[in-house]
């Protein structure tokens, strides 16, 4: 099969370019990360991040034939029609919208800065109980579909609003995490959290195009979480 990979080494290359590779997969429906590992044997200069290789760490988020995803849990047959059959090349690019450090490795600083802004930790101003803060099963259920985010950045880097305003719009990943704590019955800082989201950019730059939902490798729904935050703001402000 043919593989086309975005290459850029700022120390040696004037500008990025696409490098073509040929690989014999022996008809196996490999994961994209396996393809990269095999190519790395051919070309040790190829740079990419990977760690757990099972969709848990979120290290190998990349753009595969135009769609963001985790290379380790995306089989060739899932990338795009014709890629596994060899009719179309596998095209790998870094996550869009973030500065490229090298090849498929991006600088995630802007992404983490937005994550930090939502204060993604439990805040409770009541005295700590002797053992633990209890939740009812119903209260606990509210954070299902929120806490599972692995911060791979596939969603935020597929969002045009994040591309245009990465320093002002929090992005779907950070907003999902924001709602994770707004929905948590043990958190008492709801008002302060909401007050920080009320400007025209932080949350309201979401246009609801749902790219984030379509690419999330964990099947989460940041658009729905953003809608819930908007409802909370509406209830608070009207």
């Amino acid at each position: 099969m043919k593989v086309s990979i975005y290459r850029y080494n700022p120390e040696t290359d004037k500008e990025p370019y696409m490098k073509e590779y040929e690989l014999d997969t022996a008809g196996k429906n490999l994961m994209v990360l396996d393809v990269l590992n095999l190519l790395k044997e051919q070309d040790p200069t190829l740079g990419y991040r990977r760690s757990c290789r099972e969709g848990v760490c979120g290290s190998d988020g990349m753009n595969m034939n135009g769609k963001n995803g985790l290379a380790c849990v995306t089989a060739l047959s899932e990338v795009a029609p014709g890629v596994f059959e060899g009719r179309k090349p596998l095209i790998l690019r870094p996550l869009p919208g973030l500065p490229v450090v090298r090849d498929l490795v991006v600088d995630m600083t802007m992404f983490y800065n937005q994550y930090e802004k939502v204060q993604p930790y439990l805040q409770n101003n009541t005295p700590a109980p002797a053992i633990e803060r209890l939740q009812s099963p119903e209260e606990r259920e509210k954070i299902d579909g929120l806490y599972e985010c692995i911060l791979c950045a596939c969603c935020s880097t597929s969002c045009p609003s994040f591309w245009w305003n990465p320093e002002k719009f929090l992005g779907p990943a950070a907003l999902l995490q924001s709602y994770r704590f707004l929905a948590d019955s043990r958190d008492t800082e709801t008002d302060a959290r909401l007050a920080k989201l009320d400007d025209p950019f932080s949350l309201f730059r979401c246009r609801g195009i749902m790219n984030c939902v379509s690419v999330c490798p964990k099947g989460l729904n940041p658009t729905r979480a953003i809608g819930h935050i908007r409802d909370m703001l509406l209830e608070r402000g009207v």
Partner: peptide, 9 residues
């Protein structure tokens, strides 16, 4: 409206 919710509404 200098405010996201205001503009959105």
């Amino acid at each position: 409206g200098r405010n996201g919710l205001h503009d959105w509404l």
